[in-house]
Amino acid sequence: MFPTPIEKQSQAAQITYKALLPVALLLWLGPLLAVALFSVKPDADFVNANYWGLPSSFEFMHNYGQVFFNSDMPRYMLNSILITVPTVIGAVALSSMTGFALGIYKFKSNMWIFFMFVAGNFVPFQILMVPVRDLTLELGLYNTKTGLVLFHIAFQTGFCTLFMRNFIKALPFALIEAARVEGISEIKIFWYVVLPLMKPALAALSVLMFTFIWNDYFWAVVLTQGAESQPVTAGITSFNAQFRAAYHLMSAGSIVAALPPVAMFFLMQKHFIAGLTLGAVK
């Protein structure tokens, strides 16, 4: 193990390490903890410039109640869910098929198609912006959740294909050959042989996609406007306009907006990290 395990070092080193860890963490998360502190303070504290002292009263219920019952925030959250969930399903479904095709079959253009997906995934959003916006307008899907979902599915298929293809390629090919010898059709090989083996990849990719899509801001601004279809990342700007200078409410709003991917991460940590680091280890 590198670096040398701390247990093998002097008592002093061990104590220093254990004492420094919480300090380092506190510094690392400082800006975030500040927002958390703000979000439970009463309005009066900001008027009296009591920014950093203890809250003069604990207003957790009041502030978060405002966010949930007195703003468009629940609406934005619902929109985010209605955009994120179909996208995750769509992109994972499409890419398990493309990944299967590129990971299992050997044909001439295989590598080129694979590279098309990989390259497309790295393209800057701005070069897609005007044409995609036009296309969405023409389809009558501007300012709808569907318009956003369709684009997200298409774009994320790039990354998801890379992920799925690499995963499928690492599966034992003998299984597929055995199935073929048995005369099982290719579609059934996909459904009954490969898909069950892909469960860990499907889980990892779904968690990862959920976070990526939930956190998207650019396309939300380009393809939607207004509370009826905007997700929470874009909605938070209108929310902040509504509560201008009400830092306690803006902080509470930000925390609420950030929470679902955070919850997802802590619940599905193993899958999340497996997804993120696929390929980081040989």
Binding site: A101, L102, Y105, P131, V132, L135
Partner: peptide, 25 residues
């Protein structure tokens, strides 16, 4: 044939929303 059937929906989406717009831009 099978790989092309599996690829078709993914490629269609990707070409319409990602590859073609690059050239359009």
């Amino acid at each position: 044939i099978a790989p092309w059937l599996f690829l078709a929906p993914g490629i269609l989406f990707f070409v319409v929303y990602v590859i073609a717009p690059v050239f359009q831009s």
